[in-house]
Nucleic acid binder design. Structure first.
Lengths: 114, 114
DNA sequence: ACCAATATATCGGGTGCCAAGATATAGCGG
DNA sequence: CCGCTATATCTTGGCACCCGATATATTGGT
């Protein structure tokens, strides 16, 4: 799973949101790192609804503007949890490898200077 | 960055490896979660070398078979560290949101039980 | 003789993301 | 009144990246 999709599921794990609300919420919870574009968002939502990972909660009309609220389905929460755990392990592996590197010059291998 | 590329950089953060060695090392350090395919691997390596993130360390011929060793360039290590930190934050955000969810039924919103 | 493992390379196809722009309403400043 | 910004959704075209499959070549086991 790619980052935009991951952040959409994460945002919906908190509460149901409509598309535009997702754009602002994802920007907020990522401290501005992830800026969702319309083409990405609505494409992803269609895909996620199609896969049964996200469902349309309800639709509202406010000031003549449609708001379509999406909620995380059970399968979506399970997938997000699995994906989070997978990433956690990858992060742990990368962190461990990066720590073994000397911070100046090449990494010391088993032989050392012997 | 996608998972195969992330794991390639992670594997190379430990020590220089040749292509086939990367396939086995990535499988090992991911406990079998990531199975690198040739098409993915060599395409990614070409791309990473082209971007200056990975460099060809040396070439050996063992038993008539070529081994081309790749090492992580400075830019690659920096990128891997940045990407790891980014993922760590995403994982933290997702973990926090998932924790707020009641494990049966709908999530409790701001009101709580008050 | 055949198959598995080692080792690299290439091609076709698909997924998912992005840039860009279209559509529509409402409020604010010039 | 006109343009700009914010709110809100939708569509199209293109690209990056990955995957499956296949090709090539050597060594060793059965």
């Amino acid at each position: 799973m790619r980052e935009p999709t991951f952040m959409i599921l994460t945002a919906l794990a908190g509460e149901p949101l409509h598309g535009y609300g997702l754009i602002t919420e994802v920007a907020r919870l990522s401290d501005g790192r992830v800026s969702l574009r319309p083409g990405t968002l609505y494409g992803a939502l269609d895909r996620l609804v199609d896969a049964g990972l996200v469902a349309v909660e309800r639709e509202e009309v406010v000031d003549g503007r449609l708001r379509r609220y999406y909620r995380l389905a059970e399968g979506g929460a399970d997938l997000l949890a699995a994906e989070t755990e997978r990433m956690r392990r990858n992060v742990a592996a990368a962190t461990a490898r990066l720590k073994t590197r000397t911070h100046r010059g090449a990494p010391r291998l088993s032989g050392g200077t012997a």
